[in-house]
Nucleic acid binder design. Structure first.
Lengths: 203, 203
DNA sequence: TTTTTTGTACTGACCGGTCAGTTCAAAGGT
DNA sequence: ACCTTTGAACTGACCGGTCAGTACAAAAAA
């Protein structure tokens, strides 16, 4: 029995998450076998089934785990910006940067999330719905705040704009990793920032 | 013997494309069986292998087919806008609309494209690379043109901005279909247009 | 002692790909 | 007009391999 922060079990689960996330990102859920996951985690197959009731459940918990990290990172970026006395638009900018940093650090998770998000009729569809709503809600909150304080125009459509912003960051970052890896995070950030601040085709 | 424009074979291939695209969008490539594809197309399994040398090849040709439609649609939107004497920024706006219309019409294809695009080490990786480049290039061309004519600032980073714009449209549209289907295409279009024209946080 | 992990062996369902045989419309012969 | 042949297109039963999940005794950890 262990009573401290990380039980043995938690450590095993963590290893399994890390093994599963890269494999599933590369090959997709169905093409990834439980044997492979166990092998990469350096664990026996039986252990997988001791810790999770099925392959699907392992995946669902992986999703919850990862999105937890992302939303925490976005929220704390927004808060820190607020504490520094920044505007709400600066908070958005800080969130873009935090999003990029997250994707830079956990590219596999992001790949997997994007690949699964819009699938229909899958077992974990409901999990994804919840998890997506959490992430988009963070952006919506800041947008709503900004409209309330008059920083942004009333005419913007908050849910659609939030989705578009998230999408912009997600896809730009994945594209960066996959097709233009020689760019620095600063270059990507400023390209997106320019778009946000309307200097791409600003009035 | 048949010699006219649409051979029997082409008709069968078309049926197989249509069956495969929805199934793969819903469940992913590996989770979709050849038997299912054949059944939905109303064709025997052997016919699939008579027309395509493997499941993978069927998928690759499906990708080429679909992206062909998309780029044609984007390019013609840009051209038509040009013929009406519009600015390059108006052409971008027209392309956003064309992109949304495409996704509205072929949602399954878009889902599948996004889900597979950033996977690594897959058989069809090289096909996707080509196919992505075609799509992004259309946007890059218009951006480059706009910078040349002074319509857009020299400081924008063309490849990154093009990727971001494509991503914004892609993700916003999928999100619209999946989570906010009650919105009209006009609402989505104007939300994105506002972002493009910098009126979300324009100076 | 209790919890967790290991490793091997097994099962049964499922799936990609194959192939011998069928269908049928057009071409060619009579 | 009436048979015969040809070959592209299609069919579906079948085969060999793969994989999620199970079983369980023994070891290691706590």
């Amino acid at each position: 029995m262990e009573s401290s922060g990380t039980t043995r079990r938690q450590a095993t689960r963590q290893k399994l998450y890390e093994a599963a996330v890269t494999l599933i990102a590369e090959k997709g859920f169905s093409a990834t076998t439980v044997d492979e996951i166990a092998e990469r985690a350096g664990v026996a197959k039986g252990t997988v089934y001791y810790n999770f009731k099925s392959k699907t459940e392992l995946f669902e918990e992986l999703l919850r785990h990862g999105v937890g990290l992302l939303t925490a990172s976005l929220r704390s970026a927004a808060e820190e910006s607020g504490e520094r006395g920044g505007t709400r638009v600066e908070a958005l900018d800080a969130m873009i940067r935090a999003g990029l940093a997250f994707i830079d650090r956990y590219p596999a998770f992001t790949q997997l999330y994007v690949a699964e998000l819009w699938r229909t009729n899958r077992a974990w569809q409901s999990t994804l719905l919840v998890v997506r709503q959490e992430a988009v809600a963070v952006v919506e909150d800041v947008l709503r705040e900004a409209v309330r304080t008059g920083e942004l125009s009333e005419e913007i459509d908050i849910p659609l704009t939030a989705a578009a912003l998230v999408g912009m960051v997600l896809v730009a970052a994945l594209d960066w990793q996959a097709f233009q890896p020689e760019r620095s995070i600063d270059e990507v950030h400023s390209a997106l920032s320019l778009l946000l601040h309307g200097r791409v085709s600003g009035h």
